[in-house]
Simulated scan of single mutants.
Amino acid sequence: MSHELTLQLLDTHAGGDVSRIVIGGIDPLPGTTVREQMEYLENDADGLRKLLLNEPYGIPEMSVDLIVPACDPQAQMGYIIMEVMGYPVYSGSNTICTATALLETGLIPKREGIQHFTLESPAGLVQIEARVENGVVEAITCGGLPSYIDTHRAQIHVPGVGDVTYSIAYSGGFYALVDAAELGFSLKREEERALAECAHRIVEAIQAHSGFSHYTLGDVGPLPFLHFMGPVEQIADDFYRSRSTTYVHPGVICRSTTGTGTSARLALMHYEGTIKPGDKLETVSLRETGFIGEVVAVREAGGKHQVVENTITGKSYVLARSEIVVNCDDPMVDCGGVHHILSDRHPVAVNRSDAATA
Rank of each mutant, 00 (worst) to 15 (best):
N54R: 15
L41T: 00
P28R: 13
E39P: 08
M62E: 14
H13W: 10
A14W: 02
V34G: 10
E55I: 11
D27M: 14
D11L: 08
Q8G: 11
E42Q: 15
I23L: 14
D46V: 11
I67T: 04
E36G: 05
A45T: 09
A70T: 02
G58V: 09
L51R: 02
Y57K: 10
H13M: 10
R20S: 00
P60N: 09
P60E: 11
A70E: 02
Q74G: 08
D17S: 13
A45K: 09
L10M: 13
L51S: 04
P73I: 05
G24S: 04
L9E: 06
T6N: 02
E55S: 13
M77A: 15
L10W: 01
P69R: 00
V64N: 08
G15S: 03
E4S: 09
D65Q: 13
Q74C: 08
I21T: 02
L51M: 10
L53F: 08
E42K: 15
T12A: 08
L48E: 02
I26S: 06
V64F: 07
E36R: 11
V22G: 00
Q8E: 14
G47D: 07
L29A: 03
E61L: 13
E36N: 08
A70L: 00
Q76G: 14
G78C: 05
V22R: 01
G24F: 03
I21E: 02
N43H: 14
V22N: 02
L10D: 01
